[in-house]
Design a protein around this nucleic acid. Structure first.
Lengths: 340, 340
DNA sequence: AGAAAAATTGTAAGCGCTTACAGTTGAGCC
DNA sequence: GGCTCAACTGTAAGCGCTTACAATTTTTCT
């Protein structure tokens, strides 16, 4: 691989000049610029970005930590981020944290040790304190889907309370009065918020939340399956089930079929996230849109703005969910399920 | 950030010694080793991996180029790869090629310029010649889902002929005789192979392939939708439809519903890839398993073996597909659709 | 024309680490 | 005690690039 030295030799200029034309910033005369680029072409020169990073203390790469590389949720996020950066000549180093504290920390340290100029973190297991401490360090970062009041300007969030509200309101408007709920792990803020919004909608309809109709899941499909099974065994009746995400909703749908329930006639099911496969399940799942791709792009913009001092569209940290009505909620004109 | 120099000062040893304990290879006495690690801890020292890369000409990172960061197919692949590497202290730099020749090349060059020690490429648009030339370069790479005879030892492939064969055979065994086929773009080897296997099975059953029942799609959902629509309009009857991947199958399912066909009674549909959402569509899609996660792990092992001289399980380049029977194929005892 | 200012180019000192090679130390042996 | 040899540690030269600063050339102005 040709180095800057060989280029400078061939072009008959100094190292510094070659470096200057590469970074086309300083004033270099057109004549020398031409000589140098010609030499570069001739040698097929490619700058060694590692050396550039070391010398300039800027790696032009940003680190992204996600929980999982797979799954319908992270794909669009990564894709949105990658797209934004590619257009700016910045690059992505990706690590996975697997929702495990140790691995999340490892991931972050790796990304920092690789001289990432900035970080985009989607972390769940690591503590607020850790992140606050991290924010004092030299590597700027932005958080997706996590709120820490001390770091509020760098938290990109969905209004989950509103989302929970929207979902419940829709179901209520279809006439359902007894609504079961499968939540996420309630130590997670988003799970808590979604449930809170749910309760708000209930209150608005003068309905009380029935704790017996709550099952705490873990956002994974299996817990949706188990959740509905458990809810079905207790005695309080319900005509609709709202799940705190689509994966659990799909699990619940499978469960419903195993229990012999016709969907959506005997049980209405509502999801959350609007993951792409919700259109393909049967019946098509009504859900709440989580604009994760946009939020990813916004996180990328944040980095562009704060780390690389680029002009970006105005930054926005709070995103609004949107109700997606499909065919999994039936109209409920009257109470049809008998008590207990 | 503390540097090796400060560590050496604090520990009262030379730079070289610190470096030695970091790479714990050379013989360092226990006493000095202890001094050094103590100093590192005290300073919270983290090696700067950029500097390490530059000095050692080894970045401990491998580049991965995929077509898309999203979609059900690449997620499991990336995940398999990331897992393998994480356990070995190697790291992943990911770029997306978007099936576009220019962008694929850009991606590859970026990964190389970042001093990746090795590359895992899932490329479609770039030419064989380009890759052959690339193979003469200094950065070793392995190809997933692409066969180039000159590079055969580094091509990790699915036996797509067999996969096409298995799919067709299953449908034939259920009694179907008139089978439509929505292929991928036939300039792609995998699309061609799947179709070839399909024809082999047909031949085995003494049936001829009817060109009128072939629609060439592009592996995307929309083309499955359009494909079935087009096939439905022509006059040759068919009772089953085999799609060259699951996305198109799902598109076809939507199309079938719009055409008022009951699934699977009036039309059996078969997919390919066994993408995770195939279990969730209705009826659950019978398909052919593509062990993409395993293949990803194998690619990672290839790199570990060839680039880092690590011991790995024996390398395997050809993977076998497997039939997954679910509920989208109906049993066809006799010909029920009338001719033309 | 000659001096000062502006534009261009070169010199050389790093960035934080690895590693060949040289130097030091102490044990083992006659 | 003096020698050899192994074990350990230090010295210093890079890796390929950036960037103050100095040096040189060109332009501008009186």
């Amino acid at each position: 691989m040709a180095t800057i030295y060989e280029v400078s030799k061939l072009a008959g200029v100094s190292l510094a000049t070659v470096s200057r034309v590469m970074n086309n910033n300083a004033n270099v005369s057109d004549a020398t610029r031409k000589k140098v680029t010609a030499a570069m072409d001739e040698l097929g020169y490619r700058p060694n970005s590692i050396a550039q990073s070391l010398a300039s203390n800027c790696s032009n790469s940003v680190g992204l930590l996600v929980s999982e590389l797979q799954g319908p949720f992270y794909g669009p996020m990564m894709s949105g981020i990658e797209n934004t950066f590619r257009n700016q000549g910045k690059h992505l180093i990706i690590a996975a944290g697997h929702s495990d504290e140790e691995r999340e920390k490892q991931g972050i340290e790796f990304l920092i040790s690789r001289n990432c100029d900035g970080l985009i973190l989607h972390v769940e297991a690591v503590s607020d304190d850790y992140l606050i401490k991290l924010s004092k360090g030299r590597t700027p970062f932005v958080l997706i889907n996590r709120y820490i009041s001390e770091l509020s300007d760098r938290c990109i969030l969905l209004n989950n309370i509103k989302g929970g509200y929207l979902a419940a309101k829709h179901v209520l408007e279809q006439g359902h009065k007894n609504i079961a709920y499968i939540s996420g792990p309630l130590w997670k803020q988003d799970a808590k918020d979604r449930l809170e919004g749910h309760k708000q909608a209930l209150a608005e309809f003068d309905l009380e939340f029935d704790e017996n109709l709550l099952f705490q899941g873990d956002f994974m499909e299996a817990s949706g399956y188990e959740g509905l099974k458990a809810l079905h065994q207790q005695t309080h009746p319900f005509t609709a089930l709202i799940c705190a995400n689509d994966e659990m909703a799909v699990g619940a749908m499978a469960s419903a079929r195993d229990l012999g329930l016709t969907l959506p006639k005997q049980l209405s099911i509502m999801g959350y996230d609007n993951v792409f496969f919700t259109r393909h399940v049967y019946p098509q799942l009504s859900t709440v849109n989580y604009p994760i791709d946009e939020m990813g792009r916004m996180a990328a913009d944040w980095v562009l703005n704060h780390v690389y001092q680029k002009q970006t569209p105005p930054l926005q940290t709070l995103f609004e969910p949107e109700l997606i009505v499909r065919h999994s909620i039936s109209r409920q004109s009257a109470q049809i399920t008998s008590q207990g």
